[in-house]
């Protein structure tokens, strides 16, 4: 590229919008996780009530994409970037929804005695994956994106481990079942966040390298009920 064109300003505007969306979703998720780990009811309420802001941002980014498709009729990198942003935007919004679910299940758990299950390691990984993929987006860095694909394997392992330990606690006493189910739902949300983050990473590799790597890495293969 030898000169800055008017349309580069428009693409930059879109890039800023999707990065802002990603950062907002990241904050939203961090609050949901903190609310769960700290059993902080007020913080969980904040997450639930903030969801409409994420939804509005998603619609704005989508609207911008459609306008740019019509106005700039993109080709090559621009075309791949614009098509990917539409998908990334949707995945970010769905990560936001998972954050709300974590907050809602935590709101059930918070007034009740804690079960002896600590989700901290799994939540740390979810945070790291989301943070890493936003870094990849900001820096157009496919290596960061590929790291996320590797992390997703660990997320699947966590899910299996926690399912086993929560099941054991539920078997110990029927009074544990409702709380156990809520904890299971939270682990499921974290695992879906891993899947959605993986989708974003795949889209970054696609717009950077024009390679569709979905379903081509072991951890990217379709799993029953995966976020797809």
């Amino acid at each position: 590229m030898t000169a800055k064109h008017y349309f580069d300003v428009e693409y930059e505007h879109l890039r800023n919008a999707i990065v802002t969306m990603g950062i907002e979703v990241e904050q939203h998720l961090f609050k949901a996780i903190d609310a769960h780990l700290q059993y902080n009811e007020a913080l969980a309420d904040t997450v639930v009530s903030y969801d409409h802001v994420i939804d509005k941002m998603e619609m704005e980014v989508d609207d911008l994409c459609v306008k740019l498709f019509a106005k700039l009729q993109p080709m090559a990198f621009d075309l791949r970037f614009l098509a990917s942003v539409i998908k990334i935007n949707n995945d970010f919004e769905r990560i936001g929804d998972q954050a709300v679910s974590i907050a809602r299940h935590s709101l059930y758990l918070i007034p009740r005695p804690r079960l002896s299950v600590d989700l901290t390691p799994m939540t740390m990984l979810a945070k790291e994956m989301v943070h890493h993929v936003i870094d990849a987006l900001v820096n157009n860095n496919i290596y960061f994106a590929q790291d996320v694909l590797v992390m997703e394997e660990n997320m699947d392992r966590f899910l299996m481990e926690y399912m086993g330990s929560i099941e054991a606690i539920m078997k110990q006493d029927p009074k544990n079942v409702r709380r156990g189910i809520n904890l299971l739902f939270i682990t499921r949300c974290l695992e879906r966040i891993g899947d959605l983050t993986t989708n974003v990473a795949e889209d970054i590799v696609f717009y950077m390298n024009a390679k569709d790597i979905r379903h081509s890495h072991p951890e990217g293969e379709e799993k029953p009920g995966s976020a797809g």
Binding site: P74, M75, A76
Partner: peptide, 19 residues
């Protein structure tokens, strides 16, 4: 050619960044 050209010159031309 229009989604993933092999040459940078082609990419620059079809995306309007040429020259």
């Amino acid at each position: 050619m229009f989604t993933n050209p092999s040459k940078k010159t082609t990419e620059d031309y079809i995306t309007g960044r040429f020259g």
